Simulated assay, not measured.
Amino acid sequence: MINRYLKDLASLFFPKTCAGCDAPLVHGEKLICTSCWYHLPFTLSHDNAGNLSTGQSASFLYLLGSSRVQRIIHQLKYHNRPEIGTLLGEKYGTVLHEITPFNEADVIVPVPLHPGKLRKRGYNQSAFFAQGLSHSMRKPIVSECLIRHRVTESQTTKNRYERYQNMESAFRLNDAEAVAGKHVLLVDDVLTTGATLEACSTVLLAGGAMKVSAITIAKAL
């Protein structure tokens, strides 16, 4: 009773706010308010998954500049709120659990960060998204099989071909046995040109993965 009173008192003076619009969250809301959930631009791309050269891909949301999704992604990546990734993974996982080919995956592999960036940020946002997917889809995560061993330049000003060149050879397989003969669900935060997913997929397939499908939180437009 005392703990509940203290929590209510804390929420009065330090209210938790929505990651999408910064409005105070009301009772029953978690991280993202009801209004933002209603207005989020869902892609529904899982209903007609676009082809990668390696398999199928789908994104949960569209990412536009100065939007709710942009603010949510920014909070996830740069404001020490990895739990947002887990929530989004749980939400999307409940959908993908019923969708082929994603529900046929054997393991989930998050796109890794370079160790230097991981130390600086303190966590891999894609790994937390993978945790949510794993919970909803009841699929195991293999988080150490793929590693990022080369620091890449910023992708912001690069075209599609330059981005692919930038990502080429940035990843290597650390544990081929973990993915050998398996359908891998590759997970990242944002899909832009697809260069990162292509580079990771190439490494996974060369290492013996049977198939690679890809899921991201958002797709840039």
Rank of each mutant, 00 (worst) to 15 (best):
I99T: 08
Y78T: 00
P24V: 13
I215E: 03
L76K: 00
C21N: 13
Y161N: 11
T94H: 14
Q56Y: 12
S213P: 03
A58L: 00
E198D: 15
R148Y: 12
T157Q: 15
C145Y: 03
C145F: 03
R150I: 12
R119F: 10
H97I: 11
H39Y: 13
Y164E: 11
D189S: 05
I84M: 06
Q56W: 08
V212D: 04
T192M: 07
E90F: 09
E144K: 14
H114I: 05
A49S: 10
H79M: 04
E162H: 06
L173N: 00
I215L: 12
G55I: 04
L197A: 14
N3P: 02
S57E: 10
V69C: 01
D47M: 10
K219H: 13
C200R: 10
I84T: 09
T192D: 07
N159C: 08
G122P: 06
P115S: 01
V203D: 04
A19Y: 09
S213C: 07
I72K: 03
E153T: 10
P112H: 04
E198W: 11
L40Y: 13
G181A: 04
P112A: 04
D189G: 06
Y92P: 03
P15A: 05
T152W: 02
E153Q: 12
P41S: 06
A130D: 09
G132W: 11
Y161T: 14
Q75P: 00
G181M: 05
S154M: 00
N174V: 01
E29M: 02
K211S: 02
L113W: 07
Y78S: 00
C145N: 02
V107F: 07
L88N: 02
V179I: 15
E98T: 10
I99G: 02
S53M: 06
L88P: 02
G194K: 04
N51A: 13
A206M: 12
Y38L: 14
H183I: 08
R121L: 05
H27D: 14
S154K: 05
N80F: 02
T196D: 09
G28C: 09
G85H: 10
N103T: 09
T17L: 13
Y78V: 00
A49V: 08
C33G: 01
C36Y: 01
V111N: 02
S213T: 11
R68H: 15
K91G: 02
Y78N: 00
N159R: 07
K16E: 15
L61N: 10
N174Q: 12
H97N: 15
S57D: 01
I108H: 06
T94G: 10
I215K: 03
R150G: 01
H39S: 14
E104R: 09
Y123A: 03
I217S: 07
D106V: 02
N124R: 07
G50M: 09
S134W: 06
P115M: 00
K30M: 09
V109L: 04
N166D: 08
F60N: 01
E168I: 12
L61S: 10
P41K: 04
L31Y: 08
S45I: 04
K30G: 00
G181K: 03
V95D: 02
P41H: 08
R163C: 07
L113G: 09
S213Q: 00
G132I: 11
V151Y: 14
I72M: 07
A23R: 15
P15I: 07
F60Y: 14
T86K: 15
